[in-house]
């Protein structure tokens, strides 16, 4: 790790100001950024911690009935506090990493990083969430732009994520044996006006919606409806832990299981 300055603002406005400096970078839980810095693969001049900004931490429900999660809220808090309103989301948060990771890692950090194997992107895209930043609201459909790529501008902070609550939902995570990130993860959400299916871990373009499954499930929300589909084609990741074909197969299996578990 190289030397760096450290700032811990207590408001969004101060954080935005601090991030305006040259080579300043936001620090969420540091679960991705700090290991990268230790390996000397990142060298920000200033780290701006978002962990002291109380308006960015916590879970609540807004007038529209959406579950709103502050951008600096750790996974463990989501697992605990979203349980009543959005159990599928809470369950997803509760299976990220290990207790230490869940106590530090944040939803904003996870979505900003957009790791192709991360869990939250599936929940955000699958729920049709809104990513609120210090400057604008971004629909999940516009936010994810490929592996590690998002719609965020330089210095833009995720301050809140708003999740519409579906009638039924479930996340199925098939873990990569070493990292225990998602080898394939599928988030299925059934809303009054249709079903959304978001897939993480599988594609080299990052999280994506599986349109065929959405259409089939919107017509018939059952495991059988998934069984009739062919596995999604496209640019699947192929690595030590599984071929593209295997991942495509798992997408179908996990989708079916998510539907069955959603009830």
């Amino acid at each position: 790790m190289y030397n760096f300055e450290f700032a811990k603002p207590s408001s969004i406005a101060e954080a935005v100001e601090a991030l305006g400096h040259d080579e300043a970078q936001a620090l969420g839980g540091g679960q991705t950024l700090l290991p990268t810095m230790k390996q000397r693969l990142a060298a920000p001049a200033t780290l701006v911690s978002l962990n002291g900004i109380s308006e960015m931490i916590g879970v609540c429900v807004n007038d529209a009935g959406e579950v709103c999660i502050g951008g600096a809220t750790p996974h463990a808090t989501v697992a605990r506090e979203a349980q009543a309103q959005y159990p599928a989301l809470a369950a997803l948060a509760n299976r990220i990493g290990d207790p230490a990771v869940r106590s530090r890692g944040t939803i904003g950090g996870s979505l900003a990083n957009n790791d192709p194997s991360a869990c939250y992107p599936a929940a955000a895209l699958g729920s049709g969430a809104t990513i609120k930043t210090n400057t604008r609201d971004i629909a999940a459909d516009d936010y994810f732009q490929g592996m590690f790529e998002t719609a965020l501008e330089e210095g833009e902070i995720i301050t809140e994520v708003r999740f519409p609550v579906p009638e039924k939902a479930n996340y199925q995570k098939f873990v990569q044996p070493a990292s225990r990130f998602a080898l394939v993860g599928v988030f299925v959400a059934k809303f009054a006006d249709g079903v959304r299916v978001a897939v993480t871990g599988a594609s080299s373009n990052g999280v994506f919606r599986w349109a065929e499954a959405e259409a089939a499930l919107s017509a018939d929300f059952s495991k059988a409806a998934v069984e009739g589909l062919s596995a999604p084609a496209g640019d699947m990741i192929s690595d030590l832990h599984g071929s593209g074909d295997y991942r495509a197969h798992l997408v179908k299996v996990m989708t079916g299981r998510a539907v069955a578990a959603a009830g």
Partner: peptide, 8 residues
């Protein structure tokens, strides 16, 4: 015997 190998 990873899941991928067994499945293959």
């Amino acid at each position: 015997l990873t899941p991928a190998r067994v499945w293959s």
